[in-house]
Each structure stands twice: as C-alpha cells, then as structure tokens.
Amino acid sequence: MQERLERRSFIFTLALVTVAFALLLKPFFTAIFWACAVALIFHPLYRYLLNRFPRWPNLTALTTLILCIVVVVIPVLLVASSFISEVAALYHKVQSGEINLGAKVEQIRQAFPGINAALERFGLNFDGLKERLLGGLMAAGSLIAKNALALGQNTLNFFVSLGLMLYLTFFLIRDGNALVALLIRALPLGDEREKLLLAKFAEVTRATIKGNLVVAVTQGTLGGIIFWVLGLPAPLLWGVVMTVLSLLPAVGAAIIWFPAALYLYATGDTVKATVLMLYGVMVISLVDNILRPILVGRDTKLPDYIVLFSTVGGLLMFGISGFAIGPLLAALFMAFWEIFMREFIAEDTPLLPPRNSSPLELDEPQNPGDNPAS
C-alpha cells in the first residue's frame, strides 16, 4: 500500500513538474520546433561529414550549422527585409493617394460589365463588395506595416530567438541520436510504438518543410520573374506574397496572378494579360501539381485534402510555422489511430481507403450461397 502510494505520488509530481517545465519553455516553442526541424533536415549532411572526419564531431556539427546559416538563414533574412520595405512603401503610397485602389477596381468593373449581374444572382452588391475588399486590403497593409515597425523595434528579441534556435540546432545535430534513444527509453508507450512515431515525426517534418518550401519558393520565384518581365510593379513583393500563399495547397499563388491577369485585361493590356494567364496556368500551377504530390504527399502518405485542411488549420493556429506543424499533427493523428486499430481492435486495416476505391462499395455477397456465415 505504501509503495503504491509513493509511486502514484511520484508520477503525479513528475507530471506536475513536466507541465511546469513545458510552460516555462512556451515562449521558445517556435525556436525549439524550428531547431528540431532544421536538425532533422541537415542531419544527413552531418552524418556524411562525420563519416569522413569521425574524430571531430564538434567541428563537423559546427560546419553543418554554418552551411545551414549560409544556405537558409541569410537568404531568408535578406528577402524578408526587402519584402517588409516594399510592403511599407506600397502601403504609404496607397494611404497618400498616389495609388488609387478604388479607381483600379472601377476599371475592372467597367471592363467586365457582367460582374454586377453575376453578383446580383447571388444576392451580392458590387459597391458593398468593393468597400469590403478595399477595407480588407487597407487593414492588411496597415497590419503588415505595423508589424514591420514592431519587428524593427524588437530586433533584439528576434535575434535572441534566432540565436537560441541556432544554438539548440548545434546540439540537436551533434547529439540527435543519443537524445532520440533517451526519449525512447523515457516514454512509456512501448519502444516499437515510440520508434514508429518518432520515425513518422522525422519523415513528415522533412517532407513537409522541404517539399512545401521547395514548391513555395519555386512558385514565388517564377511568379516574381513573370511580374518583372511584364513590367508589373513590385515584383519582389508579389513574388514573396506568392511564396507565402503557395504554402496553401490547391489555391496558392493563383490568388495573386489570376486577379493580376484580370486587371491587365481590364486596363487593355491584352497581350500581357494573356501571357500572365497562360504562364500562371501552364507554369506556376503546373509546378504545384507536379512537385507537391511528389515531395509532400508521397512522403507524408497523407491525402491532398488532409494536407490542405491541416495546413490551413496550422497556419491559423500557429502562424507561419503552422504550415509544418499542421501536417505533422495530422500525420501523428493518423499514426496513433493506425496503431490503435492494429493492436487493440486486431484489424490490419488501413485508416484510409485506397484512392481508387469508394467507401460506398461494400463487399456484399452476390447470393446467399456465397456468404460464409450462411
């Protein structure tokens, strides 16, 4: 009795201390997550270098981290700073009246007179929709401009978080295998289950981050290039916006280039509009349709609709980091339920049906004689 009470008290205290420690680390959650993600992505490079220089693990891990900074961190910081500058400049031009968004919307209305009739069929009013759109754009521009100012004022906090992330990344790269072994030993889920879940975590994290970022950067770069070639304003700004929006499956960069093509049609630039429309459909969208299933869907083994909902939900819940956290949580959800079905229901049935099958097609016997139970 005494031993049972002591065990339960210890477990309760352990849970309490663990929750308190998790709350202590809550402000650094984003930095910790990205440190884990970067370590997972660059760990194969570390293993390759360590096989060539086995006597210098610290130097090998430091070299891997420096390559990560040069390849990823510095380019992202440069593009982000340029993006923030262009957004702030564009917002001030709109606010000062140098760019009249209302007049540009009216140009589209005059070029496509059928818009009013189409909206009225759905009970919508163009003027009301126009006011909402302009209000939303101004609010978004104001938010970005204020965040840019806040980022400038909180530069120290940003670089402290970045420094903590890189510092933790070094140790995760160097000691990753030992930490995983310690985690497997500590968790009370069963070694085989823990190995499977940690493998799923690593697999989905690599696939989601590498795949989504490759697709997003490719689409954003292609979009920015065509905007620059056609002489459209702020190609870097719209390229970065398309990169961010490309994190959303199915819609992505089309949110930018399609309205831009419609505006060019409305202003009479038919050639540019046609070029942009064809380029968007045949090049930018094709990148999404080809690369995303290969780099994301195949490795995560998640259907496109689950990837879409988990990505959008992750972005809404966790911010920009949600494009990786959302699909990761979805994959872990699927993995837990597959383990449950296999071990507790004693069914070797996949959680999702094959893509070519219909859930309404049941394997019913053709006649009573075919039923084994009859």
Rank of each mutant, 00 (worst) to 15 (best):
L308E: 11
V76P: 01
Q2T: 07
G141R: 09
A199V: 09
R4H: 11
L187W: 13
V214Y: 10
V180D: 06
L247Q: 00
L262N: 04
N289L: 14
L328R: 09
F42D: 08
A199N: 15
L25H: 03
L360N: 12
M138D: 05
N367R: 09
E131W: 13
Q219M: 01
K26R: 13
P359H: 11
A20W: 10
A266V: 11
R174T: 07
G141L: 08
V241F: 10
A89C: 00
I84P: 01
S321V: 02
C36H: 07
A22D: 09
G322H: 06
E120L: 12
A20H: 05
G211P: 00
L162E: 07
A234P: 07
V160P: 04
Y263R: 01
A373Q: 04
I69H: 00
L278K: 08
A31H: 04
F21C: 14
L189G: 08
F21M: 05
L65M: 05
L137I: 09
K130W: 10
P249L: 00
A103S: 15
F336L: 08
L137S: 03
V73H: 07
F170A: 04
D191Y: 05
A335Y: 02
L248C: 02
A331H: 02
V38W: 14
F159V: 03
P54Y: 11
R7V: 12
R47P: 02
C36S: 08
Q110L: 11
V79E: 00
T60D: 01
N100L: 06
V287E: 02
K26Q: 12
K210D: 02
L196E: 00
T243S: 13
F53M: 13
A216K: 03
G135Q: 10
L237T: 02
T274N: 08
R4D: 13
L149P: 02
N367E: 14
P75E: 14
I256F: 07
K104M: 04
L40M: 14
F318K: 10
Y46F: 15
K272G: 06
A22N: 00
A80V: 03
N371E: 14
N147Q: 12
G239C: 12
